[in-house]
Design a protein around this nucleic acid. Structure first.
Length: 484
DNA sequence: AAAAAAT
């Protein structure tokens, strides 16, 4: 049982904001991290998203900023005193929104800067002065070079999703930014995993960090029912439709490995009559934010995304996650399925596996420290293959591709090639539905109820799992539940 | 075999 916020020595404006947001008790990460940050110590924290991580650093950070007002600064030029760095624009946007809420009744100002948006409004805001700056690395460097962001008075820096920010390509930017900051500062680092690389980063940028760990990293939530289906590429879409229907799913995340694959799949599912939107880096930032919002509001049932959406996005109650592709990085599997089964709710994770995924499955087994049983989905119209199959077998990736697969692949490629969509789509009750404000999700039909467009043959949905198999494996260790 | 983040 965790303590209520009222036990914390927080300033009245902060307490008021917390109360207004309806929070009473702290989450475990908050209970552990807040006192440490209030004491001004560095933190190295491991916590899955959805555990209240943002409040865990925002509240004590704002408290410290309130308590130690910087002396003799002209009100017109507030220096940036706290910097929060995130690996995706959507996350930056989300965290900035939360910080604004917590700081609502204080005179502390905050701003967010990330790429894909006009520089000008950001420059304007920075010029007016902000104490808390939330940013993605690339755009922040732009502002640093343009001298619109001056970071020589930063007292606190937060590196969220730090493992992601260590990726090749991110790391140099991150290091450049950190080099602009005063050495005398408090650094808070949050990461899903404590890999050797993370530890190295921590060693060079943190001073005597307090280690906080509320959920074992590299394990998956025990409330998520996980399935792996072995399929041909051609059957992946049908499998999604079938599972949506079988489980009567209202909404789902669908993850793809590539931006192009993401765009194509979203278009195909939409043609199948499912209310779908896509989220990936080839879309404009405006479109990205709109897609996310449409999914949150329940205006669409399926969000087809790259790993840009795998981490941290706070979307309530997504009942299921599909991995249309087995993720390249096994850790991303954990992040992806972390979109479901949050805060103790039950969730479903379905991963579609093809013969080519042998190596990735091996890596996933290694990370999860378990043998993964792969289920076989059989089409009703499938010809008996003669192959013995008990519907459940240990992953071996034993088959080698045969000529038929190549034909299928070519066919699939032709079908999904960038053919322009017909200009005038036939009338469709779901697509033509007038814009509905939230809570549209309540009235909207479940994803599986949406019909294929008239005149279009729907993909065959008559596949049936040969045999239902319960959760195939369990996380090696029980993880404490996210919420109190 | 990729994605993300600057344009």
């Amino acid at each position: 049982m965790t303590q209520p916020y009222s036990t914390l020595a927080l300033a009245e404006p902060l307490k008021r904001a917390v109360a207004e947001m309806g929070y009473e008790n702290m989450t475990p990460i908050q209970e552990q991290a807040i006192p440490v940050v209030l004491a001004g110590q560095d933190v190295m924290g491991a916590a899955q998203t959805g555990t209240g991580k943002t409040a865990a650093f925002s509240l004590p950070l704002l408290q410290r900023l309130l308590k130690h007002e910087t002396a003799s600064v002209s009100p017109a030029r507030h220096p940036v005193r706290a910097l929060v760095l995130l690996p995706t624009r959507e996350l930056a946007d989300q965290v900035a929104g939360q910080v604004k809420q917590y700081a609502k009744y204080t005179n502390l100002r905050s701003a967010v800067v990330f790429g894909g948006m006009d520089m000008k409004p950001q420059v304007e805001e920075l010029r007016k002065g902000v104490e808390v700056l939330v940013a993605t690395p690339g755009r922040l460097l732009d502002h640093i070079e343009a001298k619109t962001a001056v970071l020589n008075q930063v007292e606190y820096v937060v590196l969220d999703e730090a493992d992601r920010m260590l990726d090749i390509g991110f790391l140099p930017d991150l290091q450049r930014i950190l080099n602009y900051l005063p050495k005398q500062r408090t650094t808070l680092l949050f990461s899903a995993t404590f890999s050797p690389e993370i530890k190295r980063l921590a060693a060079s940028y943190l001073q005597d960090p307090v280690l906080i760990e509320v959920a074992r990293p590299n394990t998956t939530a025990s409330t998520v029912e996980q399935h792996f289906y072995l399929l041909d590429d051609d059957d992946k879409r049908s499998a999604i439709r079938q599972v949506l229907k079988d489980k009567e799913l209202r909404q789902a995340f669908v993850f793809c490995n590539s931006k192009l694959g993401c765009a194509r799949l979203a278009r195909a599912l939409e043609r199948d009559g499912l209310r779908t939107t896509a989220l990936h880096g080839d879309k404009s930032q405006d479109e990205r934010l709109k897609s996310l919002e449409a999914f949150k509001q329940g205006e669409v049932d399926l969000l087809v995304a790259t790993d840009v959406a795998a981490r941290g996005l706070d979307i309530k109650d997504v009942p299921a996650v599909f991995n249309y592709d087995v993720p390249f990085n096994p850790e991303d599997y954990v992040h992806r399925i972390g979109r479901t089964g949050r805060a103790g709710a039950s969730g479903l994770a379905v991963t579609l596996v093809t013969k080519g995924d042998q190596r990735l499955m091996g890596e996933l087994e290694k990370l999860l420290k378990t043998k993964i049983e792969v289920e076989h989905l059989q089409f009703e119209n499938e010809r008996p293959s003669g192959r013995q199959n008990d519907g459940r077998r240990r992953w071996q990736g034993d088959e080698t591709g045969d000529a038929r697969d190549d034909v299928r692949r070519q066919r699939a490629e032709r079908r999904t090639s960038d053919r322009p969509r017909p200009a005038a789509a036939p009338a469709d009750p779901f697509f033509d539905k007038p814009y509905e404000a939230s809570p549209a999700a309540e009235q909207a039909p479940a994803a599986w109820e949406t019909q294929a467009r008239p005149g279009r043959s729907s993909v065959s949905a008559n596949i049936k799992p040969k045999r239902k198999v319960a959760a195939l494996f369990k996380a090696p260790q029980e993880t404490p539940s996210a919420a109190d």
